[in-house]
C-alpha cells in the first residue's frame, strides 16, 4: 500500500516537475512569473482530449502526446510573439510581463469557457490494460507511463541545457544578459528557445494532467499553482530545486490526500510554501538569493 502511494506520488510529482520547470525556465531568463503557462496547460489539455477522442482512426497515445507538444510549442511562440515581444522591444519594466501573463492566462481560460463551458471532460481510456501487476502491487499503467515520459523529458532537457551550446547560451543569459550580448549571444534566439521548451512542457503536462483529473478550463491555472509552489520552494529560477520540490509536493499531495482528504491537502501545500518563504526564502537551491546579492 505504502509503496503504491509512493509510486503514485512520484508519478504525480513528475507531472508537477514538467509544470514547474516550464514555469521556472521562463523565470530564469526573463525574471517574471509566467502565469500564462497555466492557460497554455488548459488549452493543451483540451487539444489533447479532442485529438485523442475525435480523430479517426483513434491515434496511438504517443501520437497524441507528440501532437499536443507541437501545438504547445506553437501556442507558446504565438503568445511570445503577440504578447511579450513588444515589451522587450519597448524595454518596458518587467512588471508588464507579469500583468500581460496574467491577462493572457485569463484570456485563454475565458475563451475555453466560451467554447466548452465549465463542464468536465473525461479522457477516453487509452491503455489496453488499466493496471499493471508488479510483484504484489497493482499500479495504474497511466502512472507508469507518465513517470517514464516525464523523467525522460527532464533528462533530455538537462542534456540540452548542460551539454549543448544553446544550453550554455541559455545558462549564460540567465546569469548575466548584458555580458552575454557582448559575447555575441543573440538573446532573441535564447528567449525563443526557452518559450519553445516551456510550450513543449505545457503540451505534455496538459495531456497528462487532463488524464489524471479531467479536462476543464481552469485545470491549467489550478495545476500551475502547484508548479508555482514547487518553483518557489525550489528557489525561483533554479531548475534543479524546482524538480526536487515538485517531486516532494506530488508525494506529499498523494499521501496527505489518502490520509487527510483533498481539501486539507491544499491547505497543507500552501502552508509548506509559506513556511519555506519564512524559513528559507531562497528556496531549496538558494540560487535566486545568491544572484540577487
Amino acid at each position: 500500500m505504502v509503496l503504491q502511494l509512493i509510486i503514485n506520488g512520484i508519478s504525480l510529482g513528475a507531472v508537477y516537475t514538467l509544470i514547474a520547470v516550464g514555469f521556472a525556465i521562463v523565470f530564469t531568463i526573463l525574471r517574471f512569473s509566467n502565469f500564462a503557462h497555466g492557460g497554455m496547460i488548459s488549452a493543451c489539455a483540451f487539444i489533447g482530449y479532442f485529438f485523442q477522442r475525435y480523430v479517426k482512426p483513434t491515434p496511438p497515445f504517443a501520437l497524441t502526446v507528440i501532437f499536443t507538444a507541437v501545438c504547445g510549442i506553437i501556442l507558446a511562440l504565438a503568445i511570445d510573439f503577440f504578447a511579450y515581444q513588444r515589451i522587450r522591444i519597448n524595454k518596458s519594466p518587467s512588471i508588464y510581463y507579469f500583468l500581460v501573463s496574467l491577462t493572457v492566462a485569463i484570456l485563454i481560460e475565458q475563451i475555453l469557457i466560451v467554447f466548452f463551458g465549465t463542464n468536465m471532460y473525461g479522457y477516453p481510456a487509452v491503455f489496453e490494460t488499466q493496471t499493471m501487476q508488479i510483484g504484489s502491487f497493482r499500479i495504474k499503467t497511466m502512472n507508469l507511463v507518465i513517470l517514464a515520459v516525464s523523467l525522460s523529458l527532464l533528462f533530455a532537457l538537462m542534456i540540452l541545457l548542460n551539454k549543448t551550446k544553446i544550453g550554455l547560451a541559455i545558462r549564460a543569459v540567465a546569469i548575466d544578459p548584458n555580458t552575454s550580448r557582448l559575447m555575441g549571444i543573440n538573446s532573441n534566439v535564447v528567449i525563443t528557445t526557452v518559450f519553445a521548451i516551456a510550450g513543449l512542457l505545457a503540451g505534455v503536462s496538459g495531456v497528462f494532467i487532463g488524464m489524471q483529473y479531467s479536462v476543464y478550463p481552469s485545470l491549467g491555472p489550478t495545476m500551475m499553482l502547484k508548479g508555482f509552489i514547487a518553483s518557489v520552494v525550489g528557489g525561483m529560477g533554479s531548475l534543479g530545486g524546482a524538480i526536487i520540490a515538485a517531486l516532494f509536493l506530488g508525494l506529499i499531495e498523494i499521501i496527505s490526500t489518502y490520509f487527510l482528504g483533498a481539501t486539507t491537502t491544499t491547505i497543507i501545500m500552501f502552508a509548506i510554501m509559506l513556511g519555506f518563504l519564512f524559513i528559507r526564502p531562497q528556496g531549496i537551491s538558494g540560487k535566486f538569493a545568491e544572484d540577487k546579492v
Partner: peptide, 9 residues
C-alpha cells in the same frame, strides 16, 4: 560561451 556566435544556431 564566447564561441556560440561563431557557430550556427
Amino acid at each position: 560561451v564566447a564561441l556560440d556566435s561563431s557557430a550556427e544556431y
